[in-house]
């Protein structure tokens, strides 16, 4: 015979508990963890490169890509310790990968750990990997309709960084529309305009990160 059982049990993606444990681990060490999410080519690595002079000596970086260690080498060239994860075909980083990476990184003096997720504005939004906050990186060259079309990442993010703003004079991009649509998706979202090329907005972003990390 059959028996129907009402469960009404919430399901989380595998790894939520490990993410909690990892978050406690980072917290005990005073490391504030930022999970950077954005499309391939949105400028996540360039943003970190631009921020590196202020982060030297107090930050480490984990890089996620399908292939190559190019990003790790770029980050090391600007003076930050970096660890590269290659997911081969995986569309996002998972918490197990972060846990294994953590042992390979010098975190003793780190105030910040930046995890640059696999370039993808969709899947990484669904996974907790031990971070304190997610920051969405969206470039103005992607098209000003992207915050409206891809709101999932913005909804789980604490901030959105609009990158490559130095290119605005050459583009048909309504940056105000990007900001408006993003705030509709998430009214709490902080928005920054940055250019890794000119350095515009990078200090404001870092000031805010320091503030949020201190408040935690």
């Amino acid at each position: 015979m059959s028996k129907t059982i009402t469960l009404r049990r919430r399901v989380e993606a595998a790894g939520r508990r490990t993410a909690e444990a990892l978050r406690r681990f980072f917290r005990r060490r005073g490391v504030f963890v930022v999970n950077l999410i954005g499309s391939p080519g949105s400028g996540k690595t360039s943003l970190l490169e631009a921020a590196a002079p202020r982060l030297r000596g107090k930050a480490a970086v984990i890089q996620g890509d399908l292939e190559t260690d190019e990003d790790k080498r770029r980050i090391e060239r600007v003076g930050l310790p970096a660890y590269q994860i290659n997911t081969i075909s995986g569309c996002h980083l998972d918490v197990g990968q972060i846990r294994r990476a953590v042992g390979q990184l010098p975190l003793d003096n780190a105030r910040f750990l930046f995890i640059e997720n696999v370039g993808n504005l969709v899947c990484p939004a669904s996974f907790e990997i031990g971070e304190d906050i997610k920051v969405a990186v969206v470039s103005v060259t992607e098209g000003d309709d992207k915050p409206a079309k891809y709101p999932v990442a913005l909804r789980v993010a604490a901030a959105m960084v609009l990158t490559k703003t130095d290119l605005l004079p050459h583009l048909r991009c309504d940056i105000e529309r990007m900001e408006r649509d993003a705030v509709v998706a998430n009214p709490e979202l902080r928005v920054f305009r940055c250019s890794a090329r000119t350095g515009e907005g990078v200090d404001a972003l870092l000031d805010w990160l320091e503030e949020v990390a201190a408040r935690r």
Binding site: T4, I5, V11
Partner: peptide, 8 residues
Amino acid sequence: VYIEEVEL
């Protein structure tokens, strides 16, 4: 995402 019901 919820598991609402299972029939055993």
